[in-house]
């Protein structure tokens, strides 16, 4: 029984938690951009890739200088630098590209197409600078708890391993989310962002400067994208193309939670992550511990092969859209 629980924790809960935190951070960026700029930013996945790339380069720089984070990955020290460069880049694209359409009050679809153009450029830049190969940049300690230690402590047959990156992911995500909600809820700038998202015309009538709100939003979105990208890269590995593919689960998370709702983005991230992990995990091990030996299952008890994880996020997305068009946490419907 306990073994089943531990196996469940080890193979479903902990990975799902880490993945969910990464998705939630990504979805937060998408949802903020949607709330303030009112379009679905297709370049977000590549913004994550860009931020991660800058952080990796900075990590390599630090490592060559002999600086390391000790037990923690060096990338955490390089992270602020990655955020800074990404924020500058994103502000540049806003100034050069998006602002023009904002002034024109272009339709959201046009902005989506514009973001496709930005996506192409960013994707190309990332490939141009760091290439398409897989880059591993995690260093420091590998595990917080190893399976062996866990077994020794508890005397259970099944081990629980928690990787450092998983721990860092969850801790960082909690810190970032708390900071973000404090910013949105308590500071003058944060409140003005919420006001702008809620009712743009009235925000203008109150003297809120739209350009400033937009800039702050881009900076936050860049920071969230970089953090999410680096955490994902540390946890798995960095490959330019996987970030583009993350776009689908991230959008699914943002929409399931309700586009424009930060709380919804977080909930959506975990809903998507846990569904993906649950549906694609082979439950044989857990079930074997639960049932008497002679009833142990022959098959893997896997609902779907891992290659179909996109299908899972997608199915949830469609179900939510059909039955709750504004998402779990009442996002914007128009």
């Amino acid at each position: 029984m306990l073994n089943a629980l531990v196996a469940f924790l080890n193979f479903v809960f902990v990975p799902g938690l880490a993945y969910g935190a990464q998705l939630a951070l990504g979805a937060l960026g998408v949802t903020l951009i949607y709330g303030i700029l009112r379009f679905s930013n297709f370049a977000h996945g590549d913004t994550m890739a860009f931020g991660t790339m800058v952080t990796i380069l900075a990590t390599w720089g630090l490592q060559s200088l002999g600086i390391s984070g000790g037990v923690l990955p060096t990338a955490l020290i390089a992270l602020p630098f990655g955020i800074l460069v990404t924020a500058l880049f994103v502000l540049g694209t806003d100034r050069l590209v998006y602002r023009f359409y904002r002034k024109q009050k272009a339709a959201p679809t046009i902005l989506v197409i514009v973001s496709l153009g930005v996506m192409f450029v960013m994707n190309g830049l990332v490939r141009f600078i760091i290439g398409v190969e897989e880059q591993a940049f995690a260093d420091g300690g590998r595990f917080l708890i190893t399976a062996g230690d866990f077994k020794a402590w508890t005397g259970l047959k099944e081990g629980l391993a928690i990787r450092t990156t998983q721990g860092i992911t969850v801790v960082t995500a909690v810190i970032v989310v708390v900071a973000l909600f404090w910013f949105l809820g308590k500071t003058r700038t944060g409140k003005s962002m919420r006001a702008f998202s809620d009712n743009e015309d009235l925000a203008l009538l109150s003297g809120i400067n739209p350009e400033r709100v937009v800039q702050v939003t881009w900076i936050i979105a860049a920071a969230l994208a970089t953090i999410a990208g680096v955490l994902y890269g540390l946890d798995k590995s960095f490959k330019a193309f996987t970030y583009f593919q993350l776009l689908l689960p991230i959008f699914a998370a943002a929409i399931v939670g309700g586009l424009g709702s930060p709380l919804g983005a977080i909930a959506g991230g975990f809903v998507i992550a846990f569904s993906e992990v649950t549906v694609t995990y082979a439950w044989k091990k857990v079930v074997t511990y639960l049932v008497p030996a002679d009833m142990a299952p022959d098959g893997l008890l896997q609902l779907m092969s891992t290659d179909y994880k996109f299908a899972v996020s997608f199915a949830i997305l469609i179900i939510v859209l059909l039955f709750m068009p504004t998402g779990l946490f009442k996002g914007k419907s128009v």
Partner: peptide, 13 residues
């Protein structure tokens, strides 16, 4: 009004 914000936040805005 800003419907998603509290009365006090409306006034602050």
């Amino acid at each position: 009004i800003f419907t998603s914000m509290t009365v006090e936040e409306n006034l602050e805005m």
